[in-house]
Design a protein around this nucleic acid. Sequence first.
DNA 1: TAGTTTGTTCAGTTATGGCTGAACAAAAAA
DNA 2: TTTTTTGTTCAGCCATAACTGAACAAACTA
Lengths: 168, 168
Amino acid sequence: MDYISEAGHVSARQGHETGKRSQEGITRFIEQMGLSAQQDGVARISGRIFGYFIVHGGPVSFAQLAEELQISRASVSTNARSLAALGIIERITLPGDRQDYYQLAVSPFLRMIESYLVRMQQMQNILQQADDSIPAEMHATHARLAQMRRFYAAAVQANQQLIEDLGP
Amino acid sequence: MDYISEAGHVSARQGHETGKRSQEGITRFIEQMGLSAQQDGVARISGRIFGYFIVHGGPVSFAQLAEELQISRASVSTNARSLAALGIIERITLPGDRQDYYQLAVSPFLRMIESYLVRMQQMQNILQQADDSIPAEMHATHARLAQMRRFYAAAVQANQQLIEDLGP
DNA sequence: TAGTTTGTTCAGTTATGGCTGAACAAAAAA
DNA sequence: TTTTTTGTTCAGCCATAACTGAACAAACTA
């Protein structure tokens, strides 16, 4: 039995020996990924889609995603494209098939770190601006801003190192 | 002129020579900290309070916070306590004064990383559960879960290293 | 004692953004 | 051509949670 290539029919195998209990575990995992995403300020459905692709690496068709996760096609469109834009999943096409397919990206976690890095760089810009526009007499303020910049510089460096360590 | 010890009167110095322009820079910074916090899934007011303490290290009284940031006492109570719970600011008292005062914690950024670590450990628990409850036959799924666990393990280690590097 | 000051809690309002159905456009099939 | 398939977009509904005003409790002051 191959769960991977028949992702679309897993939910129909209720009566199977491994079926019910394992199905519970899978849906719970996907649901937890949704909640976890929501905690991180990401749409719940994006988290569920990500979880779905952890379980079934893909390729999975657009229509399959909507049916399996029981979400509207509009939500599939929005969230899958959003995840693809982040480099976490990627859109592919299959010859002789008009549908869009998605599959897990090769290294989804590296992309997640890269998103963090972007956020940190935005914060560094804010700190730079503050440093420029706040009068020099405010020594203690500038000292705290400098401390903050050192922190973000170190954090950026640590995450770049992490990317290298996890890379090929 | 000492901006630090008279945090409560900065906004009143509109006519001063350094006043108007620098005041703009400060409020813009505080406002950007609010927006940045909101992006991170934290209440905007919490971000503003944090920004305020970057500018004026404190101690700042409860009432001052409400007045300076033009927010309700209820919001001060909720958000300041929340930041204090995260270890980013701390509540102190001054002898002969009934008011609560807050000041920036000694190393607010270390505390922020520690919060990240907690989240990552929650994710590790979720992965552990999934690993336990998903049938062993799903080899590809277990491989992806293992990859994910390696990622979080490395991320936790990197951040713990970062904490050490930034520590005293 | 009654009256202030001070912080917390909670019900209610408001703002934000997620999700959906429906309308739509593009492209293939009939 | 008309019809069907497929994905996108957008207006509107809904859920979540941020924020506030008001009521409250505790502790000080008079």
